[in-house]
């Protein structure tokens, strides 16, 4: 028996107000556990797609179900990570990690338990009482990720989360993200500009084209998990990066 999709876009159209059509005729279903990367020229509607899943903006046409419900009703199943760490500078790391749960009214004891588990997952020990200004870019991102993980979401939406980090840190966090995925089974929608990152992380890559935003091509990535540094050195990995880069170039030139 096939598993019901966790997210299902059905001919989804979106425009903001009476502006132009931002995304047009999106058909996309995600199975639980999928790691889907969205890649495409800037302005093609990647962030908009995430906003629709989050129920933050109404559809203009088509239908969208999240966890079998409307996006609004499924909001409690989601967590987000943005490009900016979006930490509250006046709160310590511990409080920052707990803030998402706090907004959802989780009790202090449960928050602390979930926080310790999340700190474990992102490997950020001994910084609980530090303030954001005392952290490096990579550490801030870890806090941001930990904050999302405390919610133990069914769906994790990541909008260029590592885009502002240096290559080394980004690769580390990519590996850790996959590690975490082994322990916390969420479905990921991951927006990125880095083809290498998309290939390394995902089992599915959606290449989008702009004006209006459409799905240009879907590429499956069949390398087995867990993926490691060795994956990055393998021949099929390089071939796939080249293939997706080619696709991306073709949509960017139109």
């Amino acid at each position: 028996m096939p598993v019901p999709p966790i997210v299902a876009f059905n001919h989804v159209v979106k425009r903001y107000g009476d502006g132009p059509v931002v995304i047009d005729g999106i058909d996309l279903t995600a199975a639980p556990g999928d790691f889907i990367s969205l890649i495409g020229p800037s302005g093609c509607g990647k962030s908009t797609l995430l906003r629709l899943i989050a129920g933050l903006s109404p559809l203009t046409g088509g239908s969208l179900t999240v966890d079998g419900r409307t996006p609004e009703d499924a909001a409690a199943e989601l967590a987000f990570v943005f490009q900016e760490p979006t930490l509250l500078p006046w709160l310590t790391v511990a409080h920052n990690i707990e803030v998402a749960q706090q907004l959802r009214g989780v009790s202090a004891a449960d928050r602390a338990t979930a926080r310790r588990r999340a700190v474990e997952l992102v490997r950020l020990h001994g910084r609980d009482s530090a303030y954001p200004r005392q952290l490096s870019g990579g550490q801030k991102m870890r806090v941001s990720l930990a904050r999302a993980l405390t919610l133990e979401p069914k769906i994790l939406l990541l909008d260029e989360p590592f885009g502002a980090l240096d290559e080394m840190t980004r690769e580390h966090l990519n590996e850790e993200l996959l590690d975490i995925r082994e322990k916390q089974a969420w479905t990921a929608f991951f927006v990125t500009h880095s083809v290498a990152e998309a290939v390394f992380l995902s089992n599915r890559i959606i290449v989008m084209s702009a004006n209006p935003g459409r799905i240009h091509r879907e590429v499956r990535v069949d390398f087995p998990y867990p993926r490691t540094e060795a994956t990055r050195l393998s021949r099929p990995y390089h071939d796939l990066v080249a293939e997706v880069s080619g696709l991306l170039r073709s949509v960017e030139n139109t």
């Binding site: 933050l56 943005f82 509250l88 706090q102 907004l103």
Partner: peptide, 24 residues
């Protein structure tokens, strides 16, 4: 970005004001 974060997690007007805007 912080306002966006609070809205995404469906913060109430009260939470947005006193947990975010006032300390900021």
């Amino acid at each position: 970005n912080l306002v966006e974060l609070f809205r995404m997690y469906r913060a109430t007007r009260w939470q947005e004001t006193f947990w975010l805007r006032v300390p900021a």
